[in-house]
Structure formats: C-alpha cells, structure tokens
Write a protein that binds this DNA or RNA. Structure first.
Length: 615
DNA sequence: GGGATTTGACCATC
DNA sequence: GATGGTCAAATCCC
C-alpha cells in the first residue's frame, strides 16, 4: 500500500537532514495544531448527535436504541475537551519556549484554574467518576538538552500555567487559556488591529488555516463568494527576534460569511476588517476565521524563510515557475517550517531568482512540463477502496515506483500507462491534511486513446449518497439525509451544510465545468429541475448540483445516453446499462453523475466540486 | 503462472 | 550531499 508510510523492511525515511530543536518544536507545534483540528471536528460531530447538546434530537425509541448511550457520549466529549485543553496548553508552552519570553496566563485563566483531579471528577461524573486523569500537577520546567545548538540551549524559565479547566462545553465557552488573548498576543508583541468580529471558540488559535483558491482570483465585482481576501503582502522585518527575520502579513478581508458555526452573526455584519501582525505567516493565518472559503489575490510575495499556507504555497509555486521542490511546497502547504535560519531563506530566494534563468533540465522538459496537470481527487469509499487511490477512469495505469517524499507523511506513487509507447504518467500522493484527497499530477498525454476504454464503475447503488447533495437551501433536510447515510464522508458534508450554504456563489470555472445530459436519444426527454450552487465552507469546496429528470418513452430500446462534463464524457450504451447504472465518474475534476431509475423515469444528478487549490 | 506491486538501487539534478 | 524520478529484481496475490 503506497498510501501508508513504509515500516519494517522498508523503513520510513523521514526526510533526513539535521533539525534544530527549534525546528523540532515547530514540528510538534504543527502536529498539535492538526490534532486540535481533528479534535474539534470530532467534537463537532459528537455535538450534532449529543442528547446533551440537543435533548430533542433523540427522536423515537427506535432511534434511541441505535445511538451511543448518552453517558458514553458525554464521556467522549469530556475526553475530547480534555485532549483539546492539553493541546492548547502544549502549544502555548511551546510558543513560550520558542520565544523565550514567558507569556503569563491571562487573568481569566487564573480564575478558571482548578485542580486536575477536580476536573476529572467533573467531566467523568456520569461515566467513570473515580477515574483520575494523568495530568502533571506541577508547572513544567524545561530541561534544555546539553547538545542543543539552538537558542533552546539557554535555560528557559517557564511561567506557571495551571491546567485550565472548563466547566462549560466548547460551544458556549471559549477555551480559558485563549479567552483573554488578543489575536497576536501569544506570538509577539505585534499590534492587534481593530476587529469588529467577535472571535468564536473555533477561530481563536491553531485551527484550520483557510487556503486560497488555485483558481484565478475573483474580484468582488464578478464573484459573490463568501469571503474575499482583498490583499496579502509580506515583508521582511529584520529587527524581529534578533537575527531571525520575520514575515509579517497584513490582511484586509471583506467578509459576508465566515464561521460556519456562527454564520448568522457574521452575516449580520456584511463587512469587517481584520488587521493584525504576526511573526509567522502560518500563525497569522491561524487568526483567520476557521473554515472559511475564499479567493485571494497575492499582491506581493517574498520568498519566505518560513512556511505559509495555501495562498502562499500557490504563490510560491507560481513564483518558482511551477518547479519548486516538492519538499518546499509540502512544507508551504503544510505550514511546516523547513528551516528557520536565514540561510534557508536565502536559499529559497536564490532559487526564486534562478528561475529567471531556467535550468537545463527544465528547459529541455518544457514541452512535457506544459502538459502536466495537477488535480486533487477524492477517494470514494467503497469504489476506490481496492486500489487505494482515486479511480480516474483510465484502466491501464501501472505502478512503477513508490517514493517517500521529504516532509510528506504519505508516499508518492508513480504510475504510467501500460499501453505500449504511451507516454502518459501520473504521480499520486495523499495530501497530509486529508489522506482521502490525493494530489494527482498528470504528465504527458495519452497516445493510446483507442486502447484505453473508460472503466465502467461497479454497479453498486450509491444513489442514497448522491441524493444528499441536492438539498441546497434546505439544510435541515440535507443534514437529515446525510445523517442517515452510511457514507463516512457524510458527517463532513453534514457539517458543511449545517455550516451554511451560500446560494449564487458559483464561480465561472464551475459554471463552465458542468453540463449535464446535453445529448439524449430521441426517446428520452429531459427536464431540468434545478441547479443549485453552494459553498461548502466546512470542506473549503464550492459545489454545484444540477438535477435533471429523465423520462424514457417508447419502450426499452435505448441506445445511448451521454452526460458531459468539462473534459470528458460518460455514457452507457444499452438498456441494461441504463437500468443498472448507478454512478459514473464523469471526469477527473470531481464531477459525478448519479442515476437512479424506477421504471421509465429517473433522476440524474450531477455534482461538481471545486476544491480551491485544495488545502 | 502471470500480472501487479513493492522496494532498494541507481541516476540526474540542484 | 540531498532529493526526486525511474529501473528492475523480488515479492505478493489472484
């Protein structure tokens, strides 16, 4: 399985190189941040069905039998909350170590502090009252490694931080550790500009960093997307933290919607300005409201000495002529700092400059490179499980290599077309943040068009999952459908829908992408029922669904039906196909057509999902 | 047994 | 020297 790190005989290579302690700490910080994201997601999913959160959601007795016992749910939630507390605490501690400047807990924290055993007794009172939680009772005192070559070599006296204990659930009470902090106070003494947005519990710190769209930047004139990042610029501040230069980012955002968990409040304030300064672009991004979907225009970009995320990664790719080292891009996208030293910054800047004179290899490969295309494809549970990678419809891919990539958790698989003399290749790599989404880089074109018929999808009935996407504007119904779905992705989509859909937010790219059932035989009539656009903020996707009712007349002499997406077509050529056909991957851009037929009438739903840059 | 996959080695490039 | 792409022998699996 190329999608998992290799262990045992093929020991995972962790990229090599010497990492300073500071870099290791940054790594840990990144891991903790991601852990928190997952914890919050899980917590949110638990909240959706928690009887404590919604006593009326239990339904009848049949449903009660099917759900997790309330006491277990509460215990799970308490576990999650405790875990999240610890992650927040660890992050605060790490940042304190890094900056070597103690950041005392806010007054609200001191007021909130109680003993850990008291917490245990509180959170587990309904489940396992006597079970203590292993938590340190004393403030952590750093023990610098004698071999350290970083600033950590110096003894760092850490401030006392008592374990913050929450008495209320996260939905109604922000974390006490962060409740009293201004946006950048934990990182630097940078200014914290005015913000008219009341930070929600989900947007404080270390949450998912919104990513910029890879699509051409949209302006507010031609795009009604929920959030527009008006400008983003970076500049060096060599005076910051001694010799380490800092990337300062300034954001000016106009937003009509941001936090899907508190969408109404944001909508009531159609425009807000959020300015701040942080000593790390990724940290700056962390202050953006969580789970937002936006486009951005990069007005200026300086090759970073530290990682950025999303927009910066894309900008870096462009800046480096699309030939940036994968390690750098992976680090950029992952928010991982490859090296905090000035030398690494210079290296990146030099690389950027070198690209004005294109390397020999690149020049020679120009023709081929122009044919490369990067896509993000989602693994469809049940359909792609066997191969472990998304099925793009081509039958002849042969795997010829597997490689661990520096700073990427998952291996990259190398595939080429098995047809003789065909030069098509692709590289497939799960993204770090969501292994079910793969970055697929196609290189070269197929020269075997007649020899690789599209692979017919298994005729499993996936209609139940497909229909869940048509309920834009009817979030409750959609959520109910998704909740009843067995699709593991349903929870995420449920969160997305519950988080708020924005009608009329389709981008021109999506408009061009979707065309449903434009070729029909004479005995089939099609009636377009609806076309819905929505921004699935929770998954950073924009989705379009078109629903077409299809009626077959004149008996079962169907010959062919085609549905066409932007780059490919799907077809079924016999009545038997028509009857049994359930799902077809229309093309590689996450366009799916679903068909369900009862007697002579069916409904075809085409869903197009645009993943903005993905990540 | 044969095709597909894995995996260490090799090579090109920076 | 580090890194990514490719090769090919070994191995796996149907």
């Amino acid at each position: 399985m190329e999608n998992r790190p290799s262990f045992g005989r093929g020991m995972l290579r962790l990229g090599g190189g010497n990492w300073s302690e500071a870099q290791c700490v940054e790594k840990v910080e990144e891991m903790l941040s991601r852990a928190i994201i997952h914890q919050e997601d899980l917590w949110g999913m638990l909240m959706l069905h928690s009887p404590a959160a919604d006593p009326g959601a239990m339904g009848g007795p049949e449903q009660q039998q099917a759900v997790i016992p309330p006491m277990v749910l509460r215990a799970l939630m308490a576990k999650l909350e405790n875990s999240m507390d610890w992650c927040h605490l660890a992050l605060c501690r790490l940042k304190e170590i890094l900056s070597n400047s103690p950041c005392p807990p806010p007054a609200s924290l001191a007021a909130a502090a109680r003993s850990s055993r008291e917490l245990a007794a509180t959170t587990f009172r309904d489940y396992e009252p006597a079970k203590p939680i292993q938590q340190p009772q004393q403030p952590i005192v750093s023990k610098p490694s004698p071999s350290s070559s970083s600033k950590l070599k110096q003894h760092t006296t850490l401030s006392q931080i008592h374990v913050p204990l929450r008495e209320e659930c996260l939905a109604s009470s922000p974390h006490p550790l962060t409740a009293g902090l201004q946006p950048s106070s934990c990182f630097s003494a940078g200014e914290s500009g005015p913000s008219t947005v009341t930070d929600s519990p989900w947007s404080y710190l270390f949450s998912a960093t919104p990513k910029a769209s890879a699509a051409p930047p949209a302006t507010r004139d031609d795009d009604q997307s929920a959030l527009t990042l008006e400008s983003l610029d970076l500049h060096e501040d060599s005076t910051h933290q001694g010799q380490q230069s800092a990337q300062h980012m300034h954001f000016v955002m106009n937003s009509e919607s941001s936090d899907p968990w508190n969408c109404t409040d944001i909508i009531s304030q159609p425009t807000f300005t959020h300015k701040f300064k942080a000593d790390h672009p990724a940290r700056a991004l962390n202050h953006l409201p969580r789970e937002t979907s936006f486009s951005c225009r990069v007005d200026a970009f300086a090759a970073p000495s530290c990682s950025t995320a999303g927009a910066d990664a894309e900008a870096a790719k462009r800046q480096l002529g699309g030939k940036a080292q994968n390690s750098e891009i992976a680090a950029l996208e992952g928010g991982i700092e490859l090296g905090s030293t000035a030398s690494h910054s210079r290296d990146l800047q030099d690389r950027s400059r070198r690209n004005t004179v294109r390397p020999k290899r690149e020049r020679e490969a120009t023709a081929e490179e122009e044919k490369s295309e990067v896509q993000y494809q989602r693994l469809r549970p049940g359909l792609d499980a066997k191969k472990g990678i998304p099925d793009d419809g081509h039958r002849g891919w042969k795997k010829y290599g597997n490689k661990t990539i520096q700073n990427a958790y998952f291996c990259r698989g190398y595939y080429k077309c098995s047809i003789k003399n065909c030069n098509a290749k692709k590289m497939v790599q799960p993204t770090d943040k969501d292994p079910s989404i793969f970055q697929v880089t196609y290189v070269g074109k197929h020269t075997c068009s007649s020899a690789h018929p599209r692979k017919r999808q298994p005729r499993a009935n996936v209609m139940a999952g497909a229909t869940t996407f048509v309920a834009a504007g009817d979030q409750a119904a959609a959520a109910q459908l998704l909740a009843s779905s067995s699709d593991p992705n349903a929870a995420a989509d449920q969160r997305s829908l519950l988080g708020g859909t924005v009608a009329g937010a389709a981008t021109p790219e999506i408009t061009d992408m979707v065309s449903s059932m434009d070729t029909l035989p004479s005995n089939v009539s099609a009636e377009s029922l609806s076309e819905q656009w929505q921004v699935l903020t929770g998954s950073h996707e924009t989705a379009a669904t078109t629903t077409t009712r299809v009626t077959m007349t004149g008996g079962s002499d169907l010959e062919s039906v085609e549905g066409r997406g932007s780059t490919d077509t799907t077809s079924w050529s016999s009545d038997d196909d028509w009857k049994n056909f359930a799902s077809e991957d229309v093309d590689q851009n996450d366009i799916y057509s679903y068909f369900d037929r009862n007697s002579d009438e069916g409904v075809i739903i085409t869903k197009a999902v645009q993943q903005p840059g993905y990540l």
